[in-house]
């Protein structure tokens, strides 16, 4: 995964099909501005995401990972977003242990109509990661 420019952070955003992805779609249709650093991956539910997904995203060059699920209590699959929250927390701990800032991984909850909120979360995430600087894990294949 390559950066747009060397100085620009790359953010991978895992977005739930039922909420955050719709919000991102709406943000686009509404011509809302948000940084182009984000690479959106649609997931059927954030509950589908596992620790390994986040680790691989960082290993393959993401400077930050945003997990965007439904608001708590309104998951299409009842509790997928709550499962994701626990996995995100576990991964943050693991990243810290490995020496990478936990702030690079963040979970947010967005309703399908919250296009504005989606744009804000992306802006905040990009800002956080920009302050932290690049993760410098790009092209991390077998060689560490």
């Amino acid at each position: 995964m390559m950066n747009i420019e060397n100085t620009e952070p790359t953010i991978v955003a895992f977005c739930c099909h039922y909420c955050a992805y719709a919000a991102a779609d709406l943000a686009g249709s509404s011509r809302l501005q948000y940084p182009p650093n984000v690479r959106i991956i649609r997931t059927p539910c954030t509950g589908r995401l596992e620790v390994d997904f986040f680790m691989k995203a960082f290993e393959n060059g993401a400077d930050g990972v945003l997990v965007a699920g439904c608001e708590e209590g309104s998951c299409h699959f009842k509790e997928g977003n709550l499962l994701a929250k626990r996995r995100v927390n576990y991964t943050r701990k693991l990243l810290s242990e490995a020496g990478l800032e936990a702030e690079r991984l963040r979970m947010v909850n967005i309703g399908a109509a919250d296009a504005q909120k989606f744009a804000e979360h992306v802006r905040e995430m990009v800002e956080t990661v920009r302050k932290l600087g690049p993760a410098r894990l790009k092209k991390a294949t077998n060689q560490g």
Partner: peptide, 10 residues
Amino acid sequence: SALRIASKVQ
């Protein structure tokens, strides 16, 4: 993955 990341960072 965690060890590869630790290796890169450290």
